[in-house]
Design a protein around this nucleic acid. Structure first.
Length: 277
DNA sequence: ACGAGAACCTGTTTGC
DNA sequence: TGCAAACAGGTTCTCG
């Protein structure tokens, strides 16, 4: 469900509620997410002050004073919401974690499909943590560029679609934004990754940055149920050019083609065969 | 070594 | 209307 823009949106929504606050209560209602929670997860965090909420790839990092870091991943269906002081929190079936602060807010991690992750690290070892160690560059940082992308794609015969979903190539993209970035770059999802070099890699890197920036500005994408922690919805879905638009006209002025849907490694790819080569 | 497909789990939508 | 199949924003494992 959530890709980089949605996770960024979640982090921005959580920061004002959590940063500077002490976690007075950490409740684990169900420990068996995709990876079993460390047994001492709650105890390690309880009583600590949250210094900063930030994002790496699709991970939410809750950095606590003194070194502990909670690493959260929303998987496919994960959501974070907060409940204000005085509001009733009736925990649902899929509310797996609840963080209660010293000013009475509660932050709830909900994940119906349980593809999500909750893990724990110490700050000085964070980069080496198994979930973070192999991630590629952040696409909105200076570490990402056309040449960097070209280098990561060289020698790879897999379709560019699959390569961009590989978090080691570039961190944070998922099915929606890969489709949209490839459309903006004019590249077919079926093109072999190693053929994306020089100018094509420049165009693709620029398209990735642009689509992610636009999506963050729109508060992410709400297809079914994604929502910000305060309950507001994202609206980038209205800016989709190809995702979910099978059979509809290509949005490019002067193009008479229609958006096609194909399946690549088990996932839908949407593209315009005329504009994307 | 690499890539396609299955698997993980639940909920919602689609089609007969 | 009812039920089964298909599908979903992610990642990892297995198999060829």
């Amino acid at each position: 469900m959530p890709e980089l823009p949605e996770v960024e949106t979640v982090c921005r929504g959580l920061a004002p509620v959590l940063e500077g606050r002490v976690l007075e209560a950490v409740t684990v209602r169900r420990p068996d997410l995709r990876f079993l929670l460390p047994p001492d997860f709650a105890e390690r965090l309880r009583g600590r002050r949250v210094e900063r909420i930030r994002r790496r790839a699709k991970f939410i990092l809750m950095e606590m004073a003194g070194g502990p870091v909670a690493i959260l991943h929303l998987g496919m269906s994960g959501r974070m919401r907060f409940v204000a002081p005085g509001e009733e929190l009736a925990p649902g079936r899929h509310d797996h974690l609840i963080f209660g602060t010293d000013h009475g807010y509660r932050v709830v991690f909900n994940d119906a499909r349980r593809f999500g992750i909750a893990a724990y690290a110490e700050a000085e070892r964070l980069e080496e943590h198994e979930f973070l160690a192999d991630l590629g560059p952040e696409p909105l940082s200076n570490a990402f560029s056309g040449p960097v992308l070209a280098a990561a794609l060289s020698g790879r015969r897999t379709p560019i679609k699959a390569a961009l979903l590989d978090q080691r190539v570039v961190a944070g993209l998922g099915n929606i934004y890969v489709c949209e970035a490839l459309y903006r770059a004019g590249l077919s999802p079926r093109r072999r990754a190693y053929t994306v070099q020089k100018g094509r890699a420049e165009r693709l890197a620029a398209a990735v940055r642009q689509v992610l920036t636009d999506a963050i500005a729109a508060g992410g994408t709400t297809l079914r149920d994604f929502a910000r922690p305060d309950g507001e919805l994202g609206y980038f879905q209205h800016a989709f050019r190809v995702y979910g638009r099978e059979g509809q006209d290509c949005p490019r002025e002067g193009c008479s083609g229609a958006v096609r849907r194909i399946v690549q490694s088990g996932r839908s790819s949407f593209f315009c065969p005329t504009c994307q080569r």
